[in-house]
Write a protein that binds this DNA or RNA. Sequence first.
DNA 1: ACAAAAAGTCAAATATAACTTACATATAAT
DNA 2: ATTATATGTAAGTTATATTTGACTTTTTGT
Lengths: 69, 69
Amino acid sequence: MSKNLKMKSARAAKDMSQKDIADATGVTRQTINAIENGDYNPSINLCIAICKVLGKTLNDLFWEDDVNE
Amino acid sequence: MSKNLKMKSARAAKDMSQKDIADATGVTRQTINAIENGDYNPSINLCIAICKVLGKTLNDLFWEDDVNE
DNA sequence: ACAAAAAGTCAAATATAACTTACATATAAT
DNA sequence: ATTATATGTAAGTTATATTTGACTTTTTGT
C-alpha cells in the first residue's frame, strides 16, 4: 500500500499533529500514523471521521491514490 | 448504522446481484449484504473496490449517509 | 403451483484493524 | 546539554470485519 500524502498535506494545512487527529477521531496516534504510511486498511467510518476533522471529503483524501493494494 | 440505499440502487442500475458484486470484489455475498444493510463498517479498500465495480466514487456511495453510527 | 435465483440472517471460526506499552529518532526551544 | 513535541516502528493483546456453512424468506420466471 502506498502512503497517503493527501491526508498528510491536508493535516499540515490545518497545522495539526497526528496526535491531534487521533484525539479528534477517537483512535490512537499509531493508527493515524499507520494510515498515513499506508500500513493498513482503515474502516470507512474512520476515514469519514478523518475527512470531517480535516474539512475534506472521501474523494479528496481516499480516492484514486490508495487503490493499489 | 443506516442502510446504504445508494449502493443498493447503484447495484440495481447495473442489474447485478449481491453475489455478483461479491465475486467482482473478492468478498462473500454476506459481506455485501451486511454493508447494504448497515450491519457493519467496511474497510476503505473494499469500499473503493465496490465503487469501481459500480462505476461510482466514494463520495457517491459512502459520503454523508453512513455518517451516523 | 412450482422451481430457481436472490436476499436476509445466524453461529462459529479466522484474519486483521486498532489498542497498549514501549523504545528510538529528529526537530525546535530553553 | 536538556526538555518537550512530533514522528516512526514493534510485540503482544483485544475488538471486530470477514469467512464459512447453513437455513429461511422473498422475489421472479415458467
